[in-house]
Every structure is written in structure tokens, then in C-alpha cells.
Amino acid sequence: MNNHTHLHIHPIERLWIIISFSMIGVFAVAVLTAGFAYGFQLPVPEDRIVDPNLVATPGATAFGEPGLRELSPGNMEARVLAQAWSFTPKEITIPVGTKVTFYVTTKDVQHGFHLEGSNINFMVLPGQISKLSTTFTTPGTYNFYCHEYCGVGHQTMYGQVIVTEK
């Protein structure tokens, strides 16, 4: 019968355990600090859910007339509608230094949205609105890709943000 309760740990292994724990701890603190104190944004639930069958109907939601809108000087919002296999609008032109908030949804299957040169990368799901903001500081052309399989034309689905000089 086995009655002992003591766990024998070799000294070097003990050291390894301490190192492992500390490493995990440092990673967790670093990542969460960046996430919550420095304002790296992840998409979070918008107040309302939508009906993907109606979301693209003009007048029903803002995605009925997708495109760019100025909210205040230097502050814009872009409503992008995803569908197999295109984004509307396909091209978005903004002046350098403008803060743009992207709102993206889909009227059919799941899609993805990853904007090069920014921290905007999210899933686009039917019934949900994905939202993140960025500010481009260098003029240029930046692709945004659909990164979730959405059918046989998936590899053709992309668009561009053109950042112009002020």
C-alpha cells in the first residue's frame, strides 16, 4: 500500500519550474498591460446584432450605403460590406494622419479582414459588426485581405486603403 504524500523534486528541476513560472508570469503581465493600459484594441460586441439577410438593404442599416464618412476633422468612419467574394467599397482613400474607424459586416458567409500595416485584423461574421480604428502615418497603398475561407473565389477577395499626402 502506498501512503506517502511527499513529492520529490530534483533541485535543478525546481529551478526549471521557477523559471517557467516566472516566464509565463512576465509574458502574461506584458501582454495584458499592452492590451489594457496601452490601448491595443480587440473587437468587442457592438450594442446590436443585425440580420445578415437585411443588412445590405439601403435604408435598413448604415451598410446599405457602405463607404467613408467624416465625423469631425481628422476623424472618419468606414463602413465596409463583405460578401462572397468582394468588399464594398473596394478602395478607400484617406488623408495621412486621419483616424479611421472600420465597421465591417457580411451579408453571407464568414469572412476576415486584415489591413496591412495596421493592427486591424478581425473576423467578419454574419449577424455581428466588427469594429477597430487605426491612424496611418505614412502615405502609401495598403491592402486589406479576406483571410477566412469564403468559397472558391476566396483568394480574389481584397481591397485597398490609399493614404494620400495631406
Binding site: A28, L42, P45, I49, M123
Partner: peptide, 22 residues
């Protein structure tokens, strides 16, 4: 990066994911 899930729950799962590294 799913739109329908609050950030706090994602962060909790992030910490738990680190712990399974142990």
C-alpha cells in the same frame, strides 16, 4: 478577434492559455 465576445473573457482565456504552457 471575433466580434461577438467581450474582451475580458478573451483576456481570461489568454491567461489560462499561458498556464497550460506550464
Amino acid at each position: 478577434v471575433d466580434p461577438g465576445i467581450p474582451a475580458g473573457w478573451k483576456a481570461l482565456h489568454a491567461v489560462l492559455t499561458y498556464s497550460v504552457f506550464f
